[in-house]
Nucleic acid binder design. Structure first.
Lengths: 228, 228
DNA sequence: AAGTGACATGTAACATGGCAGTTTGACACC
DNA sequence: GGTGTCAAACTGCCATGTTACATGTCACTT
């Protein structure tokens, strides 16, 4: 016996569709959306689309300009820096808590996702590597066993996920170093060395932030097309 | 001549009204709301009310149960613990950053709000003390100069603000110790002693969490009345 | 050619109506 | 007294209509 989970409302699936389209790059960054067009494309009315866009705005994935339109977010250098700093704070704190209060499960989950990433790396599977990476960091957050923290994390991380697929299309990021850093974190966790694990993790996210910065600086194009 | 700032949308003022009513205690915790009644009471249609409630749900102030009704949140012991832990993580990280990159302004703001709290304390002004307290912690968050962090903080802190007014009606909390702890943080910040400031702040929030716990344990009543 | 303003178009905000799921309570029945 | 039934009331979800505002277009003036 378990509480039955309600079937997802139309608004929720609509939000998932649009979120997925943004993260996957189907809807380009900065492109203009329209409630009506999205509703027509998804075969629903404007109401759920409107609700979904409002939810996505709170995730930072879209920006609703009153009476003007809704736009996919555009990566601003400062905003990305702030997001990465925020992410570092949440993840390092979660890692600290997880090692102390949830060591066995945390280590197991990290090792599993680490293995998945190594397999993907050997198979040159960029998408698989990204999935493993998300799984890895998600395990860190879940290890803290704090739903408020997890909710906040998921709400702030979406734009970074979208940026990742937009900037690193075909394994162009330094996956070798990334893999080594993940393994270093796992080793530190295995040794229950909180300080080392936290500093390794902070460095890892810092490197990602640096990669974002260099990529963003080289992309001055601000092309605002219509997508929907 | 100056650029005219757009008047707030109906949804925004509606959300502010309802949020204020919850935080101030006008709408009791756990009470059942209704889009229709709220709309009638506020003199607007159901649309802005609905949007506002959705926004308040993402703040954790209300819980929308599909087809059943919307309820003001109820303080769950574990949820409150998690909120306080989350809050500690955000504030200590912000304080750390603020001392390093924004010391002068941070110290000034903290001293100002500290003085306001002392005045309120001398005048037995409970409301004034609470306002000063909010100002104090807000200054810490703003000191980090990270909008993502600040947004996340404001989104998670609302239930705690509501709890404070619900649990500590008439100066029943230990304001003397609270005041001393605030001053201790200020002194540590003045001395640029990051470690000390952070640990003092963590202790302070921990004490608040403890006060919440004891209060909540003594309130077993789960009276769900209708308010709107 | 450059500037102006009327106008058409597109947008989201807001209002309202219909609908399906949930709760409630009266009431017949055991 | 306890139990099952069912209908009415209530709820939020979704669809659609209406309105105010933003903006692009283009004839017209200078």
């Amino acid at each position: 016996m378990q509480p039955i989970d309600h079937p997802k409302s139309l608004m929720e699936v609509t939000a998932e569709q649009i979120r997925c389209a943004i993260v996957s790059g189907e809807l380009p960054l900065g492109s203009k959306l329209s409630e009506q067009r999205l509703a027509d494309a998804l075969g629903v009315s404007r109401s759920p689309v409107r609700d979904a866009l409002a939810a996505l705005q709170s995730e930072g994935l879209v920006r609703i300009s009153p009476k003007r339109g809704t736009f996919v977010f555009t990566p601003d250098l400062r905003v990305v820096d702030e997001l990465c700093e925020h992410r570092t704070i949440l993840e390092t704190a979660a890692l600290h808590l997880g090692i102390e209060r949830n060591h066995a499960k945390l280590l197991r989950d990290l090792e599993n996702s680490g293995a998945a990433m190594e397999r993907a790396l050997a198979a040159k599977d960029a998408h698989g590597y990204t999935m493993g990476d998300h799984q890895f960091h998600n395990a860190i957050i879940l290890g803290a066993e704090n739903r408020s923290l997890a909710k906040s994390y998921n709400l702030t991380i979406s734009p970074l996920k979208a940026l990742r697929t937009h900037l690193f299309t075909i394994m162009s990021e330094n996956t070798d170093r990334s893999m080594k850093e993940h393994l270093a974190v796992i080793n530190a966790v295995r040794a229950k060395d909180v300080e080392l694990a936290v500093s390794q993790l902070a460095d890892h996210i810092g490197h990602l932030a640096e990669a974002f910065r260099t990529k963003l600086r080289s992309e001055k194009s601000s092309n605002v097309k219509r997508a929907m």
